[in-house]
Simulated scan of single mutants.
Amino acid sequence: MKTLAALLLSCAACLPMAAAHAADADYPSRPITIVVPFPPGGSPDMLARVIGDKLGQRLGQTVVVENRPGASGTIGAAHVARAAPDGHTLMMTPNTFVLSPLVLPKGVVTFDVQADFAPVILPAKTLMVLAAHPRLGVKNLPELVTYAKAHPGLTYTGSANGSPQHVAGEMLKQMAGIDMSFVSYKGLAPALNDTLGGHVDLIFVPYGNVAQHVKAGALTVLGGLDEERLASAPEVVPLREQGYPRMVVGVWTGLFAPRGTPAPVVDRLNREINAILALPDVKQRLEGASQILVGGPPATLAKVVKRDLDTYAPIVRSAGITAD
């Protein structure tokens, strides 16, 4: 009897494992769509296409990238949130996905960032830096704070209202007790042009977009907003190492599936994409586009989503930040 009972228990324990292997083996059963909730051309679109091409080869199915822009990325995200949770509809999105529910009017966002999506993988991030026009004469964050207290009313930019750059500036204002005003632009290019021209004092910007201007002396990088020093830019000292340990604003792109997607499917996607990120041609292509490859388990993406929500929400509320 004891032997029979032990055998039955052993078989019962094997059932979930067998079901998991079956779900993994049956996936995918048709083409996969990666929704990018923004127009073609940006980092999420590039990541989706580079990874999607390799993923299709590895899984033996077509991977289609579908751009669904509109309403600050919420139209595409809402579509994915409503999709069948079977791993055949995914979303590649920047971290503005986390900010949207905080800065957009009520009713625009019809999904819950954490409850309605299953994190799959954090493929890459970008180093955002704080840069100053050289006429300020500052070289690092402590020097900027001293200058700003003696010269209140500095201006800063990065992109539009409600962007991560906007939040980063308000965070710095609150932490350092300085007076700055945000100047909104319809995109990074005009914001950078006006900063280079001296019409704006400071800019929060991806390092890859300003490295050439820094080298030419047209801008001065005061520090980076990543939580760690990066091998790809060892000369950039994190702001958190300059007396402001909470001054971290991530710029990342994540791959999500609808809530309820089976764990074996999520694990299969995660496993395949980690392998893709390790391919020499993929590393060369993405790192050449100023992407910092991350990868790791789904929990890595879940962690940065929670970190950003916990960091941004009080800043947005206290500063009254709204999107354009």
Rank of each mutant, 00 (worst) to 15 (best):
A132I: 04
A132Q: 10
A132K: 02
A132C: 12
H133L: 02
H133N: 04
H133Q: 15
P134C: 14
P134L: 10
P134K: 13
L136Y: 01
V138H: 09
V138F: 12
K139H: 12
K139W: 03
K139N: 12
N140Y: 02
L141K: 10
L141H: 10
P142Q: 03
P142K: 08
L144I: 03
V145H: 05
V145S: 00
Y147C: 05
Y147V: 13
A148V: 12
A148S: 15
A148I: 15
A148M: 02
A148H: 15
K149S: 11
P152R: 12
P152V: 03
P152S: 01
G153T: 09
L154K: 03
T155V: 05
Y156V: 07
Y156G: 01
T157F: 11
G158Q: 01
G158M: 06
G158S: 11
G158K: 06
G158N: 01
A160G: 03
N161M: 06
N161Y: 10
S163Y: 07
P164T: 09
P164K: 03
V167Q: 06
V167W: 11
A168R: 06
A168F: 01
A168T: 14
G169F: 12
G169A: 05
E170G: 09
M171G: 01
L172A: 06
L172M: 08
Q174P: 00
Q174Y: 12
Q174E: 09
M175F: 11
M175R: 15
M175L: 15
A176P: 13
G177T: 13
G177C: 10
G177K: 07
G177D: 06
I178L: 14
D179F: 11
D179H: 11
D179A: 05
D179W: 13
M180Q: 15
S181K: 14
S181W: 02
F182L: 00
F182E: 00
V183A: 03
S184V: 08
Y185R: 04
K186H: 14
G187M: 07
G187S: 04
L188C: 01
L188N: 06
A189R: 10
A191V: 04
A191E: 00
L192S: 00
T195I: 07
T195R: 08
L196M: 07
L196R: 04
G197C: 08
